[in-house]
Design a protein around this nucleic acid. Structure first.
Length: 279
DNA sequence: AGGTGGACCCGAACGC
DNA sequence: TGCGTTCGGGTCCACC
């Protein structure tokens, strides 16, 4: 489940390989990846393009070409990249959906078991509009506790639902929301608009801390995620809440509880994360 | 208007 | 052992 830290790890690993390289040949095997457009049309459009930068915005990867064209990649749940020397990608992967052959002697494979991931081509102006409509600020960019407070104040829903909404803050998913809330000692069902200043400050501080640590650990490898070099991340060893139902809370020893919030499996400490707005 | 829940996928884990 | 069922997760899109 690639969230911001996993996507940033992928970006850091593929950026040096892609940047400055020309796409010699593109193969797209799964129509779902680029629909409603035909795979060969999309492949033809990026062939010959030279990569200028590889950026990230929220959970999106942006491969920008010198022509101005941009390839917007979303890994959704199980998308992953794998880099190898030319001809060095395993040839028996049934989940491989695309391959980019570069003019610098590298092959970049794209794999996606569940086929939710997407590749979309954009002209620069369109891309900005598209992203601006979907994403709030980058949590690790110029993002203040005051900005977070402002965004939460207008929401009429739970803290968890508000944080999962990419327009509140870009890049958090189910895992890092639970982790940030555990650190900040806030209940996932707490109404977003009811946070006191010190609570918002805590949430802001810990969401950034957790994301930074996760990037340092190269993301969390639970089921499908691994880095483009094939290594697993290490952040799963730093989890305090996510997936830890029944384990003693690392702060107070109370067993971690599991419930369902905003349609998602949600783990929290029933003692440390008390909802002061609920009876 | 804004929030909620189902659809999209498919492998893993589970139940019998 | 083998089958069927449930689950999960990000985003979009109906629906309330």
């Amino acid at each position: 489940m690639p969230e911001l830290p996993e996507v940033e790890t992928v970006r850091r690993q593929i950026a040096p390989i892609l940047t400055g390289a020309r796409i010699q040949h593109a193969s797209i095997f799964d129509p779902r990846l680029v629909r409603p457009f035909a795979p060969d049309l999309v492949a033809a459009e990026i062939e010959g393009e030279r990569v200028s930068t590889v950026d990230r915005r929220g959970k999106y990867l942006i491969v920008r070409f010198e022509s101005g064209l941009a390839l917007l990649v979303h890994l959704r749940m199980t998308g992953s990249f794998r880099a190898a020397a030319a001809g060095g990608l395993a040839d028996d992967d049934p989940h491989r959906r695309a391959v980019l052959k570069l003019d610098n002697g590298s092959d970049v494979g794209y794999r996606d078991v569940r086929r939710f991931g997407t590749w979309e081509l954009f002209q620069p102006a369109e891309l900005d509009t598209y992203l601006a409509a979907r994403l709030g600020p980058e949590p690790l960019g110029a993002f203040s506790a005051r900005a977070l407070a402002q965004r939460l104040a207008v929401r009429r829903t739970s803290l968890k639902a508000a944080l999962l909404d990419q327009r509140t803050v870009a890049g958090l998913g189910n895992i890092y929301v639970d982790e940030a809330l555990w650190h900040a000692q806030l209940h996932p069902l707490r109404l977003a608009a009811t946070l006191a200043t010190d609570e918002t400050v805590r949430l802001h501080r810990f969401m950034r801390k957790v994301l930074r640590l996760a990037i340092e650990r190269q993301g969390a490898s639970l089921r499908d995620y691994s880095t483009p070099s094939g290594e697993p991340g290490g952040m799963q060893h730093e989890f305090h809440a996510y997936g830890r139902g029944g384990d003693p809370c690392d702060r107070c020893g109370t067993p971690i509880a599991k419930t369902r919030v905003a349609g998602r499996g949600t783990w929290y400490c029933p003692r440390c994360q008390v909802d002061s707005t609920q009876p």
